[in-house]
């Protein structure tokens, strides 16, 4: 592991704006040295505020503690925190070429030119931009710019790397390839990283653990599989994919006893039988073809609408009568209601 990597502890960090709106409610999270954590949530959930507080670009409320190792940095200005940050719109210095951008963090700290150049060469090679060292940043594509931004943030060997929606400005195809490259590079660097995104695929591909945030609160922190299969809250379940909430009427009809008002099941776990055999029957109201599969909306006779996935090869059409089964091991309860 990278010796510069630091563990980070967020204690009671909150941010209330002057007008009284709470962008972030008192938040705690522990990040191990060398771990990659994603802050995931919709816009306005507080993830960026938390990241910017860690970066020192936002001043959190009094009483907040941000520990880098054992050092509380909450009163340390950003430029003295020794962090690296990658911005959504790159924020590359337009007046400097690629190499000068990457060298900047070393230069302002007074690193000698020879050491600086060696480090720049090393990083440009890592991000496959050696040939672009003397190009102006305006001449690069979006993906190249973001790789320069990454190299620039990493160059001064920061204690933690902060990534603020690093792939959002890129188009879909490029996003996917850069996402995998980024995940690979971060592991090579072995650096502690906090990655803010609203894209669950991106978070799952890059991070070791995901913190799902909503309305200024972290709802759940876990690895991707746990989040998906054992979501703690309805928000987490909904945010990572889709769910069906089976109401007590439906539950009674399939013979499930439950203390909760409703139980949940993901669409891909609902079994659809085109021969009309199953625990319940219903009528297909809509089919959404999604390439690798089809999502059917099925109205259970006299009751609720269920989302269910069938394979792309299956012949299924609107108004067709189908049977539905609900494997018990896939049913789960949630601590709260939406």
């Amino acid at each position: 592991m990278n010796p510069d990597a630091t563990s980070i502890s967020i204690r009671n960090v909150a941010k209330t704006y002057d007008d009284g709106t709470a962008a972030l409610k008192a938040t705690d999270i522990d990040i191990k040295a060398g771990e990659i954590v994603a802050l995931l949530g919709p816009s306005g959930c507080g993830k960026t505020t938390l990241l910017r507080s860690i970066a020192g670009l936002e001043t959190p409320d009094v009483g907040s503690e941000i520990l880098f190792g054992n050092e509380n940095v909450v009163d340390v200005p950003s430029e003295k925190r020794h962090i690296g940050m990658v911005f959504q719109h790159y924020a590359l210095f337009p007046t400097m070429n690629v190499a000068a951008n990457v060298a900047y963090g070393l230069k302002v700290r007074g690193v000698a030119a020879a050491d600086r150049n060696a480090r720049v060469d090393e990083l440009l090679e890592k991000v496959r931009l050696t040939a672009f060292a003397n190009k102006r940043v305006q001449e690069l594509s979006g993906g190249q710019r973001q790789r320069v931004a990454l190299a620039r943030a990493i160059a001064p060997r920061p204690r933690v790397l902060l990534l603020d929606e690093p792939l959002t400005a890129l188009d879909a195809k490029l996003k996917e390839s850069l996402r995998d490259e980024l995940a690979e590079l971060l592991r090579q660097f072995g650096i502690t990283a906090i990655h803010v995104t609203h894209d669950q695929q991106e978070a799952m591909a890059i991070a070791d653990r995901l913190a799902v945030m909503n309305r200024g609160v972290i709802e759940q922190v876990a690895d991707a599989r746990t989040l998906y299969e054992k979501p703690a809250t309805a928000f987490v379940a909904e945010f990572l994919g889709h769910i069906n909430a089976l109401d007590c009427d439906t539950l009674k009809r399939i013979g499930v006893e439950s203390a909760a008002d409703s139980l949940y099941m993901r669409p891909e776990h609902v079994r659809v039988d085109v021969q009309d055999r199953g625990e319940l029957t219903g009528q297909v109201t809509r089919i959404i073809y999604q390439g690798d599969r089809q999502r059917a909306l099925i109205a259970i006779d006299g009751a609720q609408l269920i989302k269910a996935d069938v394979t792309a090869a299956e012949t299924i059409r609107v108004d067709q009568r189908v049977g539905l089964s609900f494997p018990r091991e896939r049913l789960f309860a949630l601590s709260d209601k939406k």
């Binding site: 970066a55 700290r109 902060l162």
Partner: peptide, 27 residues
């Protein structure tokens, strides 16, 4: 955009004078 440049320079460790003369004014 300039504000983002300023923040980027801060996170890279530049003090105010370095940011003002090296990043903001050139931009």
């Amino acid at each position: 955009e300039l504000r983002a440049l300023d923040e980027a320079a801060r996170t890279l460790g530049a003090n105010f004078a370095q940011r003002f003369l090296g990043v903001l004014v050139p931009a």
